[in-house]
């Protein structure tokens, strides 16, 4: 743990992880420390932790996902749990079954936890009110993506140390991004200064009322920053007239060497993936040693192991 991070918390007390917004800074640090312990164990002796042996985890992914789903599967298996993944297009939901009924059936099948990815904001909260098994939010619409934010923050802390006072810029499509929101809450709670940047159509000024700095000038956003997180730009947004074209976006907001050089000397580049080379970032920069994109992915395993272990074991104690 970095100096300055004082965790008063002794025990984890949440059986679900619905978002970062309802976590305290202590809870965030507790989770990150747990992930650090797991990562150290895995790298030093190579042994598998069996803390969830015999537990059944259902990955309910109602929206396409590769990275997050696979990371949750590996995390669960590394803890000895059985994992069953259900994809939206292969489930009864395509036959008109509601999420409520699907979830009750999954509970009746003996799930010890449900990892939910869904396009509707608030759906994990909705599910947690229906079933009494731990719910892990793996991304709900534009609302939250807590495991992603935790792995981002874990990686930033690993590279930059204590995040208090650090200047973090999130650049791209903020309006429709759950990753931006979860990171914003987590980083603010840990005392970082967060700047949100990108086209005015995708970065509403109202975020200032939620504690962020907002700018539409990428140079201003990046000057002196310790880290930049780039968010994927989606073609659909272009069609909805949020910006004129991908090449215009790359030209005005893409991260190139000259803008990157305005950041602090040891600044890092994060991206939750999937990456659009040549749009959000110059290809060369994405492969440089300042980019920690693949380390984010690896850290995602330890962070998700920590989430599953803490929430499921806590849920067990509470039941």
């Amino acid at each position: 743990m970095e100096a300055g991070d004082i965790v008063a918390m002794k025990e984890w007390s949440k059986n679900s992880l619905l978002g970062i917004e309802d976590l305290s800074s202590d809870e965030i640090l507790f989770l990150l420390d747990e992930a650090e312990t797991i990562k150290a164990q895995k790298t030093t002796d190579g042994s598998i932790i069996e803390s969830l042996r015999g537990k059944r985890i259902i990955n309910l992914f109602m929206e396409p996902s590769t990275r997050t789903r696979v990371a949750f599967e590996i995390a669960a298996k590394s803890l000895g749990a059985d994992v069953i993944s259900i994809a939206g297009e292969a489930s009864s939901l395509t036959k008109g079954e509601t999420l409520k009924d699907t979830a009750m059936n999954v509970q009746a099948l003996g799930a010890d936890a449900i990892v939910l990815r869904h396009s509707s904001p608030g759906s994990p909260l909705f599910l947690s009110q229906i079933v009494n098994v731990p719910i892990i939010n793996a991304g709900d619409g534009a609302h939250e993506h807590p495991s992603q934010a935790l792995l981002d923050i874990y990686t930033m802390r690993e590279k930059l140390g204590n995040l208090k006072g650090k200047r973090i810029t999130i650049l791209g499509d903020i309006r429709f991004s759950r990753v931006a929101r979860s990171n914003l809450w987590g980083l603010l709670k840990l005392g970082a200064v967060v700047t949100l940047a990108g086209p005015s159509t995708l970065v509403p000024k109202e975020f200032e009322k939620l504690g962020a700095r907002v700018t539409h000038d990428p140079n201003e956003a990046l000057r002196g920053a310790d880290a930049v997180m780039l968010l994927r730009i989606q073609h659909e947004r272009q069609q909805a007239s949020h910006f004129p074209s991908l090449s215009e976006y790359a030209n005005v907001f893409g991260l190139g060497r000259s803008t990157f050089d305005q950041m602090k000397k040891n600044a890092i580049i994060l991206h939750p993936g999937p990456l659009n080379r040549g749009v959000e970032i110059e290809s060369e920069l994405a492969d440089s040693n300042r980019a920690v994109i693949l380390q984010q992915v690896s850290n995602g395993i330890a962070v998700r192991m920590a989430i599953l272990q803490l929430c499921i074991n806590c849920g067990e104690n509470q039941r």
Binding site: E21, P121, G122, G141, E144, E206
Partner: peptide, 10 residues
Amino acid sequence: SPLSLKMGLT
């Protein structure tokens, strides 16, 4: 509003 923005609702 800031609330709907926070909740991820259009």
